[in-house]
Each structure stands twice: as structure tokens, then as C-alpha cells.
Simulated assay, not measured.
Amino acid sequence: MHGELATLGIKIAPSTVWEILKQEGLDPAPERASTTWADFLRSQADALLACDFIETVTFNGQRQ
């Protein structure tokens, strides 16, 4: 969460993010540090590649 906010240019302390999540009753995700974005993408590569080949035809025959 903190990293995403920083990417958007929003400066906030990691402890502030933690406090907000705690106040809302959201516990830290298990094994948060063990899964990186790159690991997630690698594990989902087959599904992501398959999505590139999906074609939808609308009611008026237009392809998307």
C-alpha cells in the first residue's frame, strides 16, 4: 500500500498506513514480504498470456 501511494506521489509514512489498516480491522497479509510483484506475474503468466487471445463479438458484430 505504501509503495503504491509513493508511486502516485503521495508521501505518507509506512507506519501511518499500518495504523489506518489496523483501525479498519485489516490485519497484515500473511507472508507479505515473501511474494513480490514479479513472483506474482510469473505465477500467473499462463493465464495472462491466455487473456491476450480472448476475442469478444458484440451483438452488432463488432469484435473487441
Rank of each mutant, 00 (worst) to 15 (best):
E24K: 11
F40W: 15
A29E: 12
F59C: 04
A50D: 08
L49K: 11
L8V: 08
P30R: 12
C51G: 09
A50C: 00
T36S: 13
A45I: 12
A13S: 09
L49C: 09
T36G: 10
G61W: 07
G61H: 01
S15E: 08
P14D: 01
Q23K: 09
W18G: 00
L49R: 12
A45F: 10
F40G: 12
A45V: 11
E4I: 06
G9W: 00
A38F: 13
L26K: 10
Q64T: 06
H2G: 02
N60S: 07
A47Q: 14
W37S: 14
E24H: 11
E31S: 15
P28Q: 09
L5M: 00
W18V: 09
S43Q: 15
E24M: 10
T35W: 13
D52A: 05
I20C: 06
L49F: 10
E31Y: 13
F59K: 04
A50F: 02
E55P: 01
A29P: 05
R42T: 15
G9N: 03
L8A: 07
V17P: 04
A33C: 14
L5W: 06
Q62H: 01
G3I: 05
G25V: 08
H2V: 06
L5P: 03
K11A: 09
P28S: 03
P30A: 09
E19W: 05
G9F: 01
N60I: 02
E24A: 11
P30D: 09
W18N: 03
D46R: 12
G25R: 02
F40A: 15
E55S: 06
L41S: 11
G25T: 04
A45W: 10
T7M: 08
T58R: 08
V17L: 05
T58Q: 01
L41P: 02
I12M: 04
T7G: 09
V57D: 07
T16A: 08
P14Q: 00
Q23D: 09
A13I: 00
T16L: 03
P30V: 11
A13P: 02
E31D: 15
Q64H: 07
E31A: 14
R42G: 12
W37G: 12
R32T: 14
L41D: 12
E55M: 02
A47D: 12
G25A: 00
F59W: 02
K22G: 04
T7E: 09
Q62M: 06
A29T: 12
A45C: 13
E24P: 01
Q64R: 01
A29V: 14
T58P: 04
I54R: 00
T58D: 01
T56S: 04
L8N: 04
T58F: 03
A6V: 04
T58M: 03
S15M: 08
I12D: 04
Q64S: 00
L48T: 08
F40I: 15
T56E: 02
